[in-house]
Design a protein around this nucleic acid. Sequence first.
DNA 1: CATTTTTATCGAGAAAATGGATGAGTTGAG
DNA 2: CTCAACTCATCCATTTTCTCGATAAAAATG
Lengths: 304, 304
Amino acid sequence: MDAHPTLDQLEIFLTVVEEGGFSAAARKLNRAQSVISYAISNLEAQLGLKLFERAGTRQPRLTEAGTSLLEDARRMIGGLQMLRARARGLAQGLEGEVRLVADLLVPMPVLTAVLDSFREAFPTVGVRLLTGALGTSAEAVLNHDADIGIVGGVMIPHPDLVSRKVGENQVLPVAAPSHPLAHAGSSVPIAVVREHFQIVISDLSRRTEGRNFHVHALNTWHVSDLTTKHALISAGLGWGGMPLWLVRDDLEEGRLVELSLEPYPPSTYSMFAIRTNDKPYGPAASWMANRFETAFAAFGWTGA
Amino acid sequence: MDAHPTLDQLEIFLTVVEEGGFSAAARKLNRAQSVISYAISNLEAQLGLKLFERAGTRQPRLTEAGTSLLEDARRMIGGLQMLRARARGLAQGLEGEVRLVADLLVPMPVLTAVLDSFREAFPTVGVRLLTGALGTSAEAVLNHDADIGIVGGVMIPHPDLVSRKVGENQVLPVAAPSHPLAHAGSSVPIAVVREHFQIVISDLSRRTEGRNFHVHALNTWHVSDLTTKHALISAGLGWGGMPLWLVRDDLEEGRLVELSLEPYPPSTYSMFAIRTNDKPYGPAASWMANRFETAFAAFGWTGA
DNA sequence: CATTTTTATCGAGAAAATGGATGAGTTGAG
DNA sequence: CTCAACTCATCCATTTTCTCGATAAAAATG
């Protein structure tokens, strides 16, 4: 009742159940048959109950207790395999965890596609996912709170950051059809634009403080996430830039309209994978950066 | 790289992390300090990586790999404790699992209250929950598909079933306010009742076949669950009997009205805990039956 | 009934774990 | 700086456990 059971014993237990007998399990595990008897008998003694009914019958049959403990044993061996797989990965230089910060502008389909395939390719590598607006993503990477960042919009060059283009993203000025700017024709001059409320994603990081890009209106409302921005614009409360993938359906079905504003710069932004230059990507992070590139490319085909 | 790590090693690993040192872990585990060194060193060799950074420093510090594997180790030891707890329970005669079949008429608050406290009282005993209408519950117990049944309505005596009353339940004939019967005054005679559609829970088991209780209408619709029945009656498609706890709010807020039908028998049903007489309740099932009794009593106070 | 195949058990040898002693190194107080 | 107290690594002798092979008893098979 004192000593722990052994993972070896549990594995033997499972093998006996699977193979249907002690001798068969011994053959499968390449060990002497007496070892199986010995192990099961020890395990039973340690747990204080009989696992198999084997009163002179050919095939030992699981007792009720054995059946109940079977699933625990399976869990344990499953956990062991996970642990060993992770250890093997770590020993080969794989990261134990990749911390990713993805900008709000990263299309959700791209993000989910990357994460899904990542999980399949690196089942033993954990993922920690942050999302950030504009500067916060770069900030997280600089602070070593994240190993890899996917950022969009205007890149501020930084001596400690290494960036690499992985895709493009379109951002359009949009408004509800009921909004005055929707009827203002093409190339609305800046003086007119400034008279209307602009909904802007606010950036709380110091990195872009004092630099609010593409803020043209005198009066702006600041929100912290795209969903809120989308809701406000849809309600006709103001206009603002939105990534194409998020408003594509709205535009097609007339719930939103694209604005043609004079001062608005080209609507295609590059998306970059960034890291600090003192800490190169590990194998998994490197794979992930590549995967983002292909995911952006594939998304572009059908989504933009 | 071949031999499995030992649960003992993993426990030592965790203790070292918790206590912050090899010696401290040795004291905590009442073992010699050399054992700790030996175990950690073996574990590291088996996993093929260093878990602690301990180059001549006072306190060994977890490596990155060690941090990643820590959670796996915790899972393993947690699983071990679960397994041992279950084994201890089984050794003392506890069931590994209780299979409960609850009649549709059992008020959900009663069911959840019982299951919640059961989980707390018997964390190592699994629960398999079936729900059944009328006869199917008794059927499941008779077939040994369930260890304990909570059935309501009319009890059909059976020589192999042992039943014990655990509570009461009220069933009322109800209809939507828009339904003709709602305006028919008190003690509507059977001839009138029969003219209207009745919504009935259909019972697919052979136990009550040919005996549809309280079916008074010429035209009936059969449904298999209370939620559907509730929806149909609410929509004014017919009338039918519903347990009080399910329609209490509807009655108070006027979405449904109670009917006063001449042929409808007393609306209070007893609820029974049943088992087969060849298989007495184990400790957990017995506790559960008692708990149903107190839960029904407590529910009656506030709920009926 | 003979044969094959099962699990249990025993004994000897191999392997591994244990506790204590020792040593090198670090930390912190005086 | 010196010393005491503490850290972890290592070695050693002892004990414990594991392993294999052989054997026995029992059951299924033909």
